[in-house]
Nucleic acid binder design. Sequence first.
DNA 1: AATGAATGAGTGTTCATTCAT
DNA 2: GATGAATGAACACTCATTCAT
Lengths: 201, 201, 201, 201
Amino acid sequence: MNSFAKKQRQVKEEAAKDAIYEASVEVLLEHGIDGLKMQEIANKAGIAIGTLYNYFDNRESLLYYVDCRLRNSGLNHIEEIAEKSAPADEKLNDLVVEFFTFCDKHHIVFSLADKLGLRDRMPKDEKTDVFERAAACIRKIFDEGISQKLFREHDTNKSAKVFFFAIIGILETKRFLNSESSVGFSQDLLDVMNTYLGNEK
Amino acid sequence: MNSFAKKQRQVKEEAAKDAIYEASVEVLLEHGIDGLKMQEIANKAGIAIGTLYNYFDNRESLLYYVDCRLRNSGLNHIEEIAEKSAPADEKLNDLVVEFFTFCDKHHIVFSLADKLGLRDRMPKDEKTDVFERAAACIRKIFDEGISQKLFREHDTNKSAKVFFFAIIGILETKRFLNSESSVGFSQDLLDVMNTYLGNEK
Amino acid sequence: MNSFAKKQRQVKEEAAKDAIYEASVEVLLEHGIDGLKMQEIANKAGIAIGTLYNYFDNRESLLYYVDCRLRNSGLNHIEEIAEKSAPADEKLNDLVVEFFTFCDKHHIVFSLADKLGLRDRMPKDEKTDVFERAAACIRKIFDEGISQKLFREHDTNKSAKVFFFAIIGILETKRFLNSESSVGFSQDLLDVMNTYLGNEK
Amino acid sequence: MNSFAKKQRQVKEEAAKDAIYEASVEVLLEHGIDGLKMQEIANKAGIAIGTLYNYFDNRESLLYYVDCRLRNSGLNHIEEIAEKSAPADEKLNDLVVEFFTFCDKHHIVFSLADKLGLRDRMPKDEKTDVFERAAACIRKIFDEGISQKLFREHDTNKSAKVFFFAIIGILETKRFLNSESSVGFSQDLLDVMNTYLGNEK
DNA sequence: AATGAATGAGTGTTCATTCAT
DNA sequence: GATGAATGAACACTCATTCAT
């Protein structure tokens, strides 16, 4: 097969998967997890049911794909923030704000797999990697803050993890409380962390 | 109707609900959330499926009941610990250890409602109350720690919430990673908190 | 559980299976094998689709049951004839006539399993047994015919098998030709066999 | 249209049909009747699925074509044997051996139409013709045997049919029993027939 | 003529819920 | 009150067929 046709097909496939991904996320936001039926996804994507099965072996595969992209999307978001050149305390603040903004939109991002029973699908390595990437972002900011003399010296590895846990906990709690905003909670988190980090501002 | 018969009936009803609750938890642990079928619950409880509907209007009601009891069970657990007379730092440690032990067993306790789509079922007040009770336990320990001169003075309201968030985050992360133990994570949390609280031990 | 209730339930179960069996056969005769859908069977039996699954694990189980009963029904039929006290030549004639009459009604009797892809479902022993039972009937008649001096002495084991093969072959051919009657073919068979058996009548 | 182009197209069409036929048979042998899907056939033939529909109106047409060719192939096989110049008893033996060898390979040859629900598709004349051709081969051998004084005089029309029925019956039985070899059965048939035919060898 | 992605009607199966006994 | 067989809507998935390229 010539390489051009091959490339073209791949592009088409990606476009289709994109459409399915976006349709899935829309359905998820509109009808919740219980509304995530193949028919519903197909409808929203404007394609036939059968077409879904041209791109994914079965429902589980499709949802796994959606879950991974969604998660990556979130991770990229916070990694971008961590890369910015800005004072560490500002970046920390941004990270929290942006993260919650993102999750307010895709409020299922870190628990989709779990709810869909896809936990066993993802290889352990990959899971660990997700966790490490997220924690690394925070740690990087903490380390920068220390070099910038904004934060006091401390074990940034541990504190980054704990900070991450607290963010996840806030997301969960927020979801549980069904509360529209997590501003109060995230502010509490930032306050406590600033104290902990010795950030006087 | 005479009061004795009424009482008797109530006792019987409670006994039945107990059995159903316990059966549900067993099924949950054995077959996971996907195995939580009415038939399965009835089998495990040793009653007919129709009987379930004498005590609960429908599946959702039953699961809501189970979820509430399960959550209360967890809360009582940590409240007991918070009531103990012991040094605050020891109690804090115990709380974390006990809480994770409990959740290792009933690892669904705080997310059952969510997964079952029961979020909208619980009145907002009650949800808030759950959160407040949990946070109050921690706050109580922090306050005691301050009186006992074990912890430094600080805004215990905020720190208790953050501590709680971190615990929930660890649970979530642990579930996500499917990792058997959360010892490492909870130790990180305790280390960070002890630093934060100025607990020198 | 008391034995009466147990018995009663079994009777009910049998009745239900009977109804399903008969409905299946009717559907088979009416719509052919391609019309043998669960919905169709349920409709014909006057029950709900779900009810079918109270008595059979899945479509395959149901069809296997139908197939076995149908086959047994045919075997019993010819075994009855073989048991009759009558001259062997008459019995041989009856067997052929009755067998084809039966198969005209249930013209799928010996090939249902095959068409439904159930071949692998039946244990080899059972299959062999079916064949042996059928052949034994014929052999019995041949042996009687020899004692009655109606047939000449010969290896009845072999000839019974060959006779059976010819019957099956006629059934197949008939089915292939879609011809309404097999009278001509079975008469040919009887003629040839009578010559072979030395039956002068 | 010029005749050359016409011819060329026909040749191409035949080549394509050949490929499709062979692919179908391969798929049949590899995946069984349930695996006989249009996609599978196209894959095996190395063409696109849409191309199948350039040569056949629909699945049924294709399978009908395959079935006819397969059957003809079998018939040609035994007709060749019947044409051979060799002693009749030897030819009879060969016919049986070769026929079963052929059917061991294409063990569906005589029942494919039936299983695929194509029975109604074949014109009655053609079906009768198939049967007549097969019977004629055997009859020819019987007639030759009589001229060669190998077999006794008898109604070869009837006996040829019965012999044919028995062969078909053996095939069916064999298929039903899923037994690897039909040597025993066909030997029984030959023994009985030799006795019947008065062939002393 | 060849392609193969898109189509969508059709099927087996599940399971919460009902109700006659 | 207890039972559990009956119910049937709902869903994932298949595959022959079409048609734009």
